[in-house]
Design a protein around this nucleic acid. Structure first.
Length: 430
RNA sequence: UCCUCGAUAGCUCAAUAGGCAGAGCGGGCGGCUGUUAACCGCUAGGUUCCAGGUUCGAGUCCUGGUCGAGGAGCCA
């Protein structure tokens, strides 16, 4: 058989050369004995540089000693043709790099096994997302990226000149458009890039990230939570089924992922708050105590989510947040207007929020009132308000961050590794 | 925007109390028939982020700046 690929690493033993070849879908070891091939070819393999492109002809055989992803087999080389000899100054050493250097060389860094594995898992996560939605009655209905104004009215937006229409803004959510779509199609999802111009500098933030946003008509908060746990479980199971070798090479403890099964624990904001307050009271570390300080009405920050989810093995659904910390369009809790029918899905192991969702407000007059309370321009939301005048129904939806989900599934430290070319506050290269 | 930390060879890092600029990897040359980031010998490789200051002497101390990282806020 022949293998086409790139030389990831070379080890020579005099009359024997090992080449660890990247061939796109995996890493395979090729072994060349001096006596098995023409002297001139062997001499070239002995001197081949890292990352050179090559076509190898040989025989596959099983060998427990052979490394690779997956390991356990290798190719005995009979002949080889070098396509291009890579320059000898390839900058990526076969070890850890600092983040600045690694990100400056993202175009090469992605060839490394760890990055290759994460991005392969990402592709499977995306495939599983579409698979579950497509087979559960959701239809893909993408939403515009160039938008006239803030969808939720709070987050900082990237802006761009738009002909004679003034400024257009890069989408930070397709949700409002999804809400229009469900009245035509019942259950829909949008899936695309999302842009946030916030100056967030943490391992959980990107300025450009991918979000899937399912939305369903005739769906209340309870039904939404069921959808979320089925959806997340399916994604985890697909990765466990199809990407074992990649997870293993990342050193991921998959027993944690194997426990992901519905139902997920459901906790009200009120109860979660009490748990956090108790944790804060019991902690002796004064710095941690200060970080965990919280009272009713405040949103959970990252330290709160971390402490809370550390006490569960599965993702946790926290519902019923205070209205004042959530977006204007969320349905109020029956009999408790200070609380809304929102739900966040917090991933375990300290990864925190990967899904934010809610039941949407279906009453026209109340929605109009909320718009005014939030000082949003009624004219810009005219179409959105009309949805409540022509056949309004209870409906719900959520947004899931792809990179945060991939980070959790892979067990990696930083979200920037979960997207091929990350965009952060200080980086738009390469 | 705020808080904390960092910047030394291509890369990852070390350098006692302020006293000759170092190692491993990667590159080059040589050796080895089972390497797993191989190993062994030799070799080349430096504006110690920038601008000032203190000092006989600064990678090290002081001032200002640049760039980066982690965290907070905000969020997926």
């Amino acid at each position: 058989m022949t293998v086409q690929g790139w030389v990831y690493n070379r080890t020579d033993k005099g009359k024997l050369v090992f080449l660890l070849l990247r061939e796109g879908t995996g890493f395979v070891q090729c072994v060349a004995f001096k006596n098995d091939l023409p002297a001139e070819v062997f001499e070239r393999l002995l001197r081949i540089t890292q990352e050179s492109s090559i076509v190898i002809t040989g025989m596959v055989r099983a060998d427990k000693r052979a490394p690779g992803i997956p390991g356990g087999f290798e190719i005995g080389v009979k002949d080889a043709q070098i396509i291009q000899t890579a320059n000898e100054d390839y900058p990526m050493a076969l070890k850890e790099h600092g983040p600045d250097f690694a990100l400056d060389h993202r175009h090469l860094w992605m060839r490394m096994p760890s990055q290759w594995a994460v991005l392969r898992v990402r592709a499977t996560v995306i495939s599983a997302i579409r698979e579950w939605l497509d087979t559960n009655g959701f239809i893909n209905m993408d939403t515009p990226i160039l938008t006239p104004a803030a969808c939720e009215g709070t987050t900082t937006l990237f802006e761009t000149p738009y002909f004679d229409e003034g400024m257009a803004y890069l989408s930070q959510s397709g949700q409002l458009y999804n809400e229009a779509d469900i009245f035509a199609f019942g259950k829909v999802y949008s899936f695309g890039p999302t842009f946030r111009a916030e100056k967030s500098k943490t391992r959980r933030h990107l300025t450009e990230f991918w979000m899937v946003e399912p939305e369903a008509a005739f769906c209340d908060l309870d039904a939404l939570m069921e959808i979320e746990e089925q959806f997340v479980t399916h994604i985890v199971k697909r990765v466990l089924r199809d990407r074992q070798a990649e997870l293993k090479s990342l050193g991921r403890d998959t027993t944690r992922l194997e426990k992901i099964e519905p139902p997920f624990p459901r906790i009200s904001y009120d109860d979660a708050l009490q748990m956090i307050q108790q944790i804060a009271a019991e902690t002796t570390d004064p710095e941690k105590k200060e970080l965990l300080k919280i009272e009713w009405g405040m949103d959970f920050g990252s330290p709160h989510e971390t402490e809370l989810t550390a006490r569960f093995e599965k993702p946790v659904l926290v519902y019923g947040y205070p209205t004042q910390v959530k977006a204007f369009y969320m349905e109020p809790w029956p009999g408790r207007p200070e609380v809304c029918k929102s739900v966040d899905l917090l991933a375990p192991e300290g990864y925190g929020e990967i899904i934010g969702g809610s039941e949407r407000m279906s009453n026209h007059e109340l929605l109009l009132q909320r718009l005014h309370e939030h000082k949003l321009p009624e004219e810009a939301f005219k179409w959105y308000l009309q949805l409540r005048q022509y056949g309004s129904v209870p409906h719900s939806g959520f947004g899931m961050g792809v990179e945060r989900t991939v980070s959790w599934v892979c067990g990696i430290e930083h979200i920037r590794e979960a997207i091929p070319f990350p965009r952060t506050i200080k980086r738009v290269y390469p």
